[in-house]
């Protein structure tokens, strides 16, 4: 039981990290950025390339190396997210939402098959596997590496939450989400704030990508597809556009999967997750904490 809870929270913290970017972008420009999961994949690959370049340090100081690479990767995927917005989405500002959605699907394919062309179709094996000591906490087996990863994820989420709720930039993001025209009249450079939103969301996805590489060990160019859909599910469960809701949704989806898998068997995991998505879309499309969305629609 406690093992199921821990497993769920662990996977859920990954979902939450990726879901946040989905949710922020949706909140600010009402775009479902289907290429978001691919930024997670890009993060995993950029981490892979950097670890390769670091070489010796990786063997002697694997955790330190991974942390360095994590920060550098966040920068890389953050900039990639900004570039994506600039090239694919900004020219369509004011276009019908369906055009944006189709563009997002196209951007997703471009990133996936671009990566395949650059890095090959075969899965890569991460140079760092965080070997950790196993601890027993309330009957659950918890590894130190899991604890470190969850701690990083939580720290990133807390930082993001504080940025959005109490900084000047965060206020500007929330203002744009509510009323972009009024936001412009405040002197806010809406395009610049949207670009920064993409940077933040993509950086978090990139961090999750490196963490997944270090934890699961294997990466491939399609790894972002399923996690993108899972992150979307998490965002919908929590209330898309709502940041605390999205974090909650990520953790909840992790728990649901963990218990669902225990109940129905591992091969049903994704069926169960997307069943939850459909259930929420039908019964409570605004999600658990998503009142703000109802107001906007």
């Amino acid at each position: 039981m406690s093992q199921l809870v821990w497993n769920g929270l662990f996977v859920g913290s990954f979902y939450a990290l990726v879901a946040l970017g989905y949710s922020m972008v949706y909140g600010v420009i009402k775009l479902l950025n289907f290429a978001h999961g691919d930024l997670y994949m890009l993060g995993a690959f950029s981490g892979f390339a950097m670890l390769g370049a670091l070489g010796g340090l990786v063997r002697s100081q694997s955790l330190l190396a991974l942390l360095l690479v994590l920060v550098a990767t966040m920068l890389v995927t953050g900039l990639a997210g900004m570039a994506l917005e600039r090239v694919a989405y900004r020219p369509l500002r004011g276009a019908p939402r369906l055009s944006l959605l189709i563009t997002a699907v196209g951007a997703s394919f471009a990133l996936e098959y671009g990566t395949r062309a650059a890095a090959g179709a075969d899965p890569r094996v991460y140079q760092v596997r965080l070997g950790g000591t196993t601890l027993h906490v309330l009957g659950a087996r918890v590894t130190v590496q899991q604890l470190v990863l969850v701690a990083i994820a939580v720290a990133l989420m807390v930082a993001l939450h504080r940025l959005v709720t109490s900084s000047r930039q965060g206020r500007a993001m929330r203002a744009i989400a509510l009323d972009p025209v009024a936001a412009r009249l405040m002197g806010i450079d809406v395009d610049a704030v949207i670009a920064r939103t993409f940077f933040l969301g993509s950086a978090l996805a990139g961090a999750a990508g490196v963490m997944a590489g270090g934890y699961y060990g294997k990466i491939d160019f399609l790894m972002g597809f399923i996690i993108g859909l899972k992150a979307f599910t998490a965002a919908v469960i929590g209330g898309i556009g709502n940041i605390p809701g999205t974090m909650l949704g990520g953790l909840l989806l992790g728990l649901l999967e963990s218990f669902g898998t225990d109940l129905l068997g591992g091969e049903w995991r994704d069926v169960f997750a997307f069943g939850c998505l459909i259930l929420f879309l039908t019964v409570r499309p605004t999600g658990l904490l998503g009142e703000r969305v109802t107001e906007r629609v």
């Binding site: 000047r168 206020r171 500007a172 929330r174 009323d179 009024a182 009249l185 405040m186 806010i188 107001e295």
Partner: peptide
């Protein structure tokens, strides 16, 4: 420019609205 229909940021507090005025 104070727009027609006021366009207050409805779910932000009064203070946050004022802070945004001074963005």
């Amino acid at each position: 420019h104070v727009p027609e229909g006021r366009r207050i940021f409805s779910t932000l507090t009064v203070r946050e609205n004022l802070q945004l005025g001074g963005y």
